[in-house]
Design a protein around this nucleic acid. Structure first.
Length: 349
DNA sequence: TCCTACGACTAGTTTACCTCA
DNA sequence: ACTGAGGTAAACTAGTCGTAG
């Protein structure tokens, strides 16, 4: 792709260097030049051999030709009431009409193309409306944004993202779902495509079966859903990310509950310890009793006490308390809630 | 064994679109 | 009706890893 700029004078001469290379390749991008000799700023983008062959040989793709013309060059009947020249420009300087020159024979005699007011919807030629929007597919009638869109998309073929334009929000619900490979090849700038409920549901079902895709599955899904394989791929990538995020959130919640349980258990044990200490200091007789034998059950790993049957009441109470304590200490169920699992299908082999 | 190219993947980011106050 | 904030999801980039040649 080539982009040429010319300020003033004969644009034909200015862009002659581009003309020379036009026979090399049919796909070569060429500048559409104009024979208009008026003082003008001109920039063009395109790919055809001659100005007159643009439509026929270019798959219907039109050349985008931007002119900043002297005000006098724009036919009066194409000037809208709202199109007021910028006050800071004198009449002899450039006004800011962007002229979209549709690739039609005869246009080289002057700026007879479409005047695209940057603040208004563009004039749409009837024939163009019939052809469908091949200049910027779904957006050719969306005014400023569509213009930005097309320009940025062309620019983007040169691996730049900096000029990606914002598109008309009003089209959100009307745009055809999915984008063809052709669109992709034309380098349309990023357009957020909401998948339909049906498409999402189908993808969800597929994800339940296998959370990764092999190329065959990807293409089959894309074909079935009328999406690009890349879209299917991206959907699965994002879906896996969402699953992981959800699982992380659940894990976090689970750990939080475990932490709360441990805190509560610790509080209870501290309280019991305090009670035992208080009991110990108030019961001198306790010290005279034979030590309680603690044994560990090898199967359940719980501690049992073997206190004598004839234990004084106070001692019995103490023992009971101690037993409870040891029982609660023996492998308490600190994690009563099994960690929740986000549905994670087995990866396809 | 090392190097390179390539594809699939993840993590993080950007951005279009939507909802709601 | 309009607007800005915030959320969601599609699409992106950069980097990693495994594998084949």
């Amino acid at each position: 792709m080539e982009l040429a700029l010319s300020l003033g004078g004969d644009t034909q001469k200015s862009f002659s260097f581009l003309k020379k290379s036009t026979n090399n390749s049919s796909s070569h991008e060429e500048l559409l030049t104009s024979s208009n000799k008026d003082l003008r700023f001109c920039m063009g983008l395109g790919k055809s051999n001659t100005t007159h062959e643009l439509d026929e040989n270019n798959g219907g793709r039109k050349i985008l030709h931007l002119d900043l013309l002297p005000l006098s060059a724009v036919p009066l009947n194409q000037i809208m009431p709202s199109q007021i020249p910028f006050p800071w420009l004198s009449q002899n300087t450039f006004c800011c009409w962007f002229v979209l020159v549709a690739a039609e024979p005869g246009l080289t005699n002057g700026p007879a193309g479409k005047v695209l007011d940057m603040n208004r919807r563009p004039i749409v030629l009837e024939e163009e409306a019939e052809e469908g929007a091949d200049l910027s597919s779904p957006n050719s009638n969306s005014g400023v944004s569509s213009f930005q869109m097309e320009f940025s998309s062309i620019y983007r073929n040169g691996n730049s993202r900096s000029l990606i334009g914002k598109r008309d929000h009003s089209e959100a619900g009307d745009t055809e779902r999915g984008v063809s490979d052709e669109d992709e090849n034309n380098g349309l700038a990023r357009k957020k495509l909401r998948l339909t409920k049906e498409q999402s549901a189908f993808l969800e079902e597929s994800f339940k079966e296998h959370n990764t895709l092999n190329p065959k599955q990807k293409f089959a899904l894309a074909k079935q859903l009328k999406l690009r394989p890349r879209q299917v791929e991206v959907w699965f990538q994002n879906r896996r990310a969402r699953t992981k995020l959800k699982q992380t959130e659940l894990d976090c919640e689970y750990l939080k509950r475990c932490c709360e349980t441990l805190t509560e258990e610790n509080r209870r044990l501290q309280k019991e310890l305090q009670e035992l200490r208080a009991l110990k200091s108030s019961q001198p007789l306790y010290m005279q009793l034979p030590a309680t034998t603690l044994t560990m059950c090898p199967s359940c790993e719980r501690v049992a006490t073997t206190t004598a049957a004839a234990v004084p009441t106070a001692a019995a109470a103490t023992s009971a308390t101690a037993t409870n304590t040891t029982l609660s200490l023996a492998k308490p169920n600190l994690f009563p809630f099994p960690p929740a699992q986000v549905h994670a299908p087995q990866a396809a082999s």
